[in-house]
Simulated assay, not measured.
Amino acid sequence: MARTKEFDPDAALQSALELFWRRGYEATSMADLVDHLGIGRASIYATFGNKHELYLKAMDRYGETRDPRLIAELSQPGPVLPAVRALVRRFAAESAAPESRRHGCFITNTAAELAPHDPAAARRVEISWEHIETPLHAALVRAKAQGELPDDRDPRALARMLFVVMQGVRVVGKASGDPARVRDAAEQALALLD
């Protein structure tokens, strides 16, 4: 007869995500995971696989909880640019918040730490980024169709630029004690929408 799990795999995965988010992939050992999750190494391997597989599952979990407001905010009827501006400003404000300074964004952290040499992590980073850039592009296409953007503006290029700024403020917000730095960068990027 098979033994039943003596722990909640869903709660364990969430706990692993939090540890990886706080410490990073390389700085988190299997011993750290065993201690933090409070379950045995064999149970971790049997349920999640090795540390890398667990990390990828944590990335997937993080992706499941991505910001549901983003699409709702950008797809409201009426003028589009106020929603785009609000989104970029929200990213900047969240990036400068004390909690963000400690942990940053899990996907952005992974992009810097693992994506250059880990194809599986890089794929997940790309998917996550597409979930931001694609609705942003669609919103800017609508803005141009509604006459909110000047004719010489390229919605795809603007979406990419705003996306890169949004990711950049996450990195700088994590490392900087000066919230004006990310706020000013966001406002300068938004000026390109005029």
Rank of each mutant, 00 (worst) to 15 (best):
T108H: 07
E94W: 00
A115H: 01
L162I: 08
A139K: 07
A159K: 09
H117N: 10
W129M: 09
E26N: 08
Q146I: 02
A86C: 01
G40S: 11
A180M: 10
R66Y: 07
L158E: 08
L136Y: 11
A111K: 11
S95M: 03
T4W: 02
P79Y: 02
P77Y: 08
D67G: 04
D8K: 04
L114I: 01
R142W: 07
A86K: 13
L87T: 15
V88I: 15
R61S: 05
E187I: 02
R183N: 07
G38T: 02
R183H: 12
P77G: 07
E148R: 07
E64Y: 01
S43W: 00
R61N: 04
A120R: 13
P116S: 00
A139D: 10
L37V: 06
P116F: 06
A86S: 13
V169E: 14
M166T: 15
F20Y: 10
S176D: 10
M30C: 00
A93P: 00
E133W: 08
I132C: 01
E94Q: 09
A111N: 00
H103M: 04
I107Q: 02
I71V: 15
R22M: 05
F91W: 14
Y45T: 08
H103Q: 10
V88W: 11
Y25F: 15
D67N: 15
V165R: 04
V172Y: 09
L136M: 14
E64A: 14
V88H: 11
F7E: 09
G104K: 06
A186L: 05
R124C: 08
S100T: 03
D151F: 03
A180T: 13
K57Y: 00
W129Q: 12
E187R: 01
P9D: 05
Y62T: 01
A58D: 12
A122N: 10
M166K: 08
F91R: 14
R3I: 03
L114K: 06
R124P: 08
P135V: 07
W129I: 09
M161S: 11
A191Y: 06
E126H: 13
F106Y: 14
T65G: 06
G147D: 03
R101L: 02
V169C: 10
A175S: 04
P119Y: 08
A27N: 12
F106Q: 04
A120N: 02
S100L: 03
L70G: 05
H52S: 06
F48Y: 14
R156A: 13
K57M: 11
D152P: 01
R142I: 05
T47S: 14
L190W: 07
W21D: 11
D118V: 06
P82Q: 05
K51T: 10
A46L: 14
R3Y: 02
L140C: 11
M161A: 15
L56A: 07
V165H: 06
L33A: 04
K5S: 10
R156C: 05
Y55V: 04
A42V: 10
D32A: 11
A46I: 03
A72Y: 03
L114A: 04
L149H: 05
Y62W: 14
R142F: 05
R41V: 02
A83C: 09
F20L: 05
H131Q: 15
P98V: 06
A83W: 04
I44F: 03
H137R: 15
V88M: 13
R41Y: 12
